[in-house]
């Protein structure tokens, strides 16, 4: 629908009571005020991020003495020194690599494992199917906090404590109930004809899954993958429990830095930006799926 407030000549002006010039001016002024308010709000949302970015482009000494906004009048302060230091110090780079090593498998595994189960729940006949599905969906309510102590104990016994596979498995397990729920509902909407046709052609369940379900489930799988990717990429709590200094992701590395004594914004600011780059790229590249993924996943 078009902006009725600024287009009084539209169809609705004919039906509505006739408007005086004064009320049109008030309307326009109101529209202008709304625009100004929105610009201010947008600035309010942007300035903190810009602040961190500019802080990451200043030296530690400059940051200790004055605020990031000083660079607006003294652009000579800008330096990539902090980024250089960060890249030459292995802690942040290693933890960035760890984040990738945790996030990619945790996302792929959730998608594959959940898609298999969702297909069985949607299109296979077996006794107790609906009951089992209900139990799986019921596990959605379990907050990760419930799993921390028992799984930490378990990992200690089998040697998964402090390892990347340990972190990945925990993420996968707690991502599954929602993933299965989302995908089963989506798969159930795929027309039966397509599956029957594949069966007629002699396809096994496995071929049907690979050739029909997986491609047709694309949009749901994309939303799920993006959501799960972000959830794992941005996690701190699970990493704090199950990772150690060798397997820590970047969120944990940043957190450790904030606990250090004294100001080390020259480490924290570029590190935070490094951690934000990938989610922001995903955000801008896959906007539509991103929004759907975040909204779909937000029921967790």
């Amino acid at each position: 629908m078009s902006a009725t407030a600024t287009e009084p000549a539209g169809p609705r002006a004919a039906g509505a009571p006739r408007r005086s010039l004064a009320s049109r001016i008030v309307n326009r002024a109101g529209g202008g005020a709304v625009q100004i308010v929105l610009v201010l709000i947008a600035l309010l949302w942007l300035v903190p991020v810009v602040g961190l970015f500019l802080a990451s482009l200043r030296s530690g000494a400059d940051n200790a003495g004055s605020g990031w906004w000083t660079v607006l009048t003294k652009p000579t302060e800008l330096t990539v020194q902090a980024y250089g230091d960060m890249l030459s110090d292995s802690t942040m780079v290693d933890s960035f690599v760890n984040t990738v090593l945790i996030t990619v498998p945790a996302t792929v595994l959730v998608v594959v494992v959940a898609a298999l189960a969702a297909y069985a729940f949607a299109w296979m006949e077996f006794p107790g199917r609906d009951w089992l599905f209900l139990v799986v969906v019921g596990l959605l309510v379990v907050p990760v906090q419930v799993g921390l102590i028992p799984v930490a104990t378990m990992y200690g016994k089998v040697g998964l404590y402090g390892t990347i596979p340990g972190v990945v498995l925990f993420h996968v397990a707690y991502g599954l109930p929602f993933a299965i729920f989302l995908l089963r509902n989506y798969f159930a909407g795929i027309p039966r004809d397509l599956l029957e046709a594949a069966r007629m052609d002699g396809g096994t369940e496995w071929t049907i899954f690979r050739r029909v379900i997986f491609p047709l489930g694309g949009p749901a799988i994309a939303s799920l993958a993006i959501f799960q990717f972000l959830w794992v990429w941005n996690d701190l709590l699970i990493a704090l429990i199950f990772a150690d200094s060798g397997s820590q992701p970047i969120t944990m590395a940043i957190q450790q830095q904030t606990r250090q004594f004294g100001s080390n914004i020259d480490v924290i600011a570029p590190g935070s930006f490094l951690s934000m780059i990938v989610p922001l790229v995903v955000f801008f590249a896959f906007q539509r799926h991103f929004v759907q993924g975040v909204l779909a996943g937000s029921v967790k």
Binding site: W45, N234, L236
Partner: peptide
């Protein structure tokens, strides 16, 4: 009723992409 609504929504929605850790660092500043 604003023409640049998409841009505005993009800006306000953006913090959803970043981690609470990064948001925390932003707000400590």
């Amino acid at each position: 009723r604003v023409r640049w609504a998409t841009a505005f929504r993009l800006v306000v929605f953006m913090p959803m992409a970043i981690s609470m850790v990064a948001a925390g660092v932003i707000f400590t500043l």
